[in-house]
Design a protein around this nucleic acid. Structure first.
Lengths: 141, 141
DNA sequence: ATAGAACCTATAGTTACTATAGGTTCAAGG
DNA sequence: CCTTGAACCTATAGTAACTATAGGTTCTAT
């Protein structure tokens, strides 16, 4: 296997990731320690690019680091089934949906307060937004 | 003004907040240093309750600590206008809306992957979710 | 007086990065 | 070959908003 070689900076650029983040992922075990030059510089290749892209895409989908470790274990080790991956994805979809619902409730509360503030030239003492935050039970709490 | 007196634990309970968080808010200047007993225990009263409720509600709405400092400054200092509060609330609503949009894109991407995984008993090697994370450009990245 | 709960301050940990500091390596140009 | 500046290295600290822990003191009820 003769792959093209990449420095960490090149790997980071290919994956829209920071060098420090690659260091971090290696430290926490998401990325393997790569071979080095005689001078100690890391040397990466295509499989590293693919693995880091996998990690970044999973992060983008909101999977936590620990979950990504699980997903990578499914890949790295034999005898795992697509069903296990699907279950994780479905669980994640459920988490995302809950966040969306939460945020939509917050949005409603904010919009309600904004509507009440028809004029912006009242003193803060008479501000319905401030009143709401000080006294009323705000949806989303 | 003779208010009822509360310990920090009582304050925390009234505001659905942790004692440590109250300490934290005092440290960062959101909450004032209250009077103490001779033994050094903090003594709170109703205005503290109201202020902490304000802070918690604002947090619940997604305002950052720095923003809440601004809001509290509007209250603590004279010569501010409701319009300034409204602007902050509208900016916050905009931020929340953007988060909602992001999350909905993530949700679509997750659901798309889940749909592709019709059967859960394939080996991981053939898993369309893993494939998608490894090779395709996932929406939301 | 005793015991246990609640309080205190100080510090570290959580999550997922990100920044900084001080030093080394590498590559390009003269 | 030498120089220079970019990129690399490791180690540590910082970010945001809390939260946990440790060791000691105060308070209250019995």
């Amino acid at each position: 296997m003769n792959y093209e070689k990449y420095s960490i900076g090149q790997l980071a650029k290919k994956t829209a990731c920071k060098v420090e983040t690659v260091h971090y992922y290696e430290k926490i075990g998401l990325m393997p320690e790569p071979p080095r030059t005689d001078g100690g510089h890391r040397v990466y290749a295509l499989p590293h690019v693919k693995r880091l892209n996998f990690i970044r895409r999973s992060r983008a989908l909101g999977f936590r680091i620990e979950q990504i470790k699980e997903l990578l274990k499914f890949i790295d080790e034999p005898n795992h089934y697509c069903g296990e991956v699907k279950a994780m994805a479905m669980q994640q979809a459920s988490v995302v949906q809950e966040k969306i619902d939460d945020l939509q409730r917050l949005q409603s509360a904010l919009n309600e307060m904004i509507i009440q503030c028809s004029s912006g030239n009242k003193q803060v003492d008479d501000c319905p937004i401030i009143d709401a935050l000080y006294t009323e039970k705000v949806v989303g709490q």
